[in-house]
Amino acid sequence: MKRNPRKVKWTKAFRKAAGKEMVVDGALDMERRRNVPLRYDRNLMMTTLTAMKKISEIRAKRERVFYKSRVISKKRTAEKTAMLKHVKMNMELVPTATRKRLEESKVLGQKVQNEDIEMA
């Protein structure tokens, strides 16, 4: 059975098209196969091994940044909306000074600032 790889969720093509994989990354180009065989050279081998270590560090760092930008930012916004909902439902438990400040800044209809949520 033939399938379009961009529609099958487990393929690399789908993950790249959906924005779940890093598409443009210079470190990925280093791993391409080269069809030209090289004669053994000790210095070349040592520089290649050190470059491989650096590339793996760079890739790990870029993947962490990519993950943070995709997943953690969405998680934080979800947590903030959950906290806001919790504050709205339990407004009688909030101290009066904080409650007045929340009402003055009209936060009940908008987003809650971090300090207001933490104090509540």
Rank of each mutant, 00 (worst) to 15 (best):
R3G: 12
Y67R: 14
M52R: 07
I117A: 15
M52W: 01
E79M: 03
A18E: 15
P37D: 05
N4L: 10
K12I: 13
D41R: 12
K68W: 04
E57P: 00
K75V: 03
T77Y: 03
T50I: 02
G26H: 02
K9A: 09
T11L: 07
M46K: 14
T77K: 15
A82E: 05
S69T: 13
I58S: 02
K80F: 06
K53E: 11
V87I: 15
I55W: 05
D25L: 07
M45R: 08
W10F: 07
E103L: 13
S105R: 13
K68P: 00
E118Y: 10
R70L: 14
R64N: 12
W10G: 04
Y40K: 09
V36D: 05
E103S: 11
T98S: 09
L44K: 14
K88A: 05
E21G: 00
G19M: 05
W10K: 07
R34E: 14
A17V: 02
A78C: 01
Q110L: 04
E63Q: 11
T47E: 07
T81L: 12
Q113V: 05
M89T: 10
I58Q: 07
R6L: 15
I117N: 01
R62C: 05
Q113G: 11
D25Y: 01
R59M: 07
K16M: 09
M1S: 10
R32C: 09
P5F: 06
K75L: 13
E92T: 06
V8A: 08
V24E: 13
K74Y: 03
I55H: 02
R76E: 12
I55S: 08
R34K: 12
